[in-house]
Design a protein around this nucleic acid. Structure first.
Length: 276
DNA sequence: ACCCAGGAGCTGC
DNA sequence: GCAGCTCATGGG
């Protein structure tokens, strides 16, 4: 079905480092991506600036993907601030990243994926997540006959031990993932309950998992729990704050959409300031 | 060989 | 509360 979404650039979203299973479908004349989330496989094509052809039923659009693509969040306040021009860097970041939206992904998948993400480059994260899914996920077939692997649930991983992860060569992250699975299955942290918490409470809960510190907790809060006040500080953002803002940057200046600002800054700085 | 990656835990002060 | 060190693995 064809849907209209304002401020939507499929390719930039797929390459903005917030999701790890959205992949380009090679097609010289079209911009197409596949994605797997919420147990479903979809293909998408960018038809024009704000029209997308998405291979899903109207019911799935309403119950899954509409929220996944954050369609009901109003980006104009964030865009207006970036586009105002008094911050030249932010203006450049907006022009470069125009069309990026923040996805609302599944909490458990996001949690595991961002534990894996630490001290890794994005292509390596995608590879590791895919290996994780092929080892522990469940094979499914889409209604168009495409076979794919769905991300495992925490229940699927009950009893997982660190040594079970050895084939994935995740190194010290093994015990972090095992701890996360154990604490979720033992109800020491409850992902469905975290949805009702505010930003500070949310990150504090997430940080109960060994291996989830401030950065990963902010990523999960932003990319899975809709906390637009989250502002993940990775090496690129820290470098940007030092080099561009002279270490004088306060995300509190962007109340209600700091996470959006952050994503545009990350995408722009990482892709254009590789040297120096 | 060296340095870095969408970091975080641990120790010592 | 903080700096400093360490933790696997892969890629440049």
């Amino acid at each position: 079905m064809i849907v209209k979404i304002d401020n939507f650039n499929l390719e930039k979203i797929a390459n903005s480092g917030q999701c790890f299973r959205m992949n380009k479908i090679e097609d010289v004349h079209r911009c197409k991506f596949s994605n797997i989330a919420y147990g479903k496989y979809i293909e998408m094509e960018q038809l024009d600036k704000n029209h997308i052809n998405i291979t899903c039923s109207p019911q799935d659009w309403i119950s899954i993907w509409r929220d996944y693509f954050d369609v009901d969040f109003d980006y104009t306040p964030a865009i207006d601030i970036m586009n105002r021009g008094d911050d030249k860097f932010l203006l450049k970041a907006y022009e470069y990243g125009e069309g990026i939206r923040i996805l609302n992904q599944e909490p458990f998948e996001t949690l595991i994926s961002f534990i894996i993400s630490q001290q890794k480059q994005i292509p390596s994260i995608k590879k590791s997540v895919e290996e994780f899914v092929s080892l522990f996920g469940t094979e499914k077939t889409s209604e168009y006959g495409v076979k794919y692997m769905a991300f495992p649930s925490s229940e699927d991983l009950k009893g997982l031990e660190a040594k079970d992860l050895a084939p994935l060569k995740l190194g010290y992250r093994d015990e972090y993932i095992a701890d996360a699975v154990e604490k979720i299955n033992d109800n020491i942290i409850d992902l469905s309950q975290i949805k009702s918490l505010n930003f500070a409470e949310c990150t504090n809960e997430l940080k109960k998992v060994k291996g989830i510190g401030p950065k990963v907790a902010n990523c999960i809060a932003l990319f899975a729990f809709k906390h637009k006040d989250a502002f993940p500080r990775d090496v690129w953002i820290n470098r940007m704050i030092e080099n561009v803002y002279g270490n004088k940057f306060n995300e509190g200046d962007y109340d209600g959409f700091a996470g959006i600002i952050q994503q545009y800054m990350f995408y722009y700085y990482k892709n254009t300031f590789k040297k120096g």
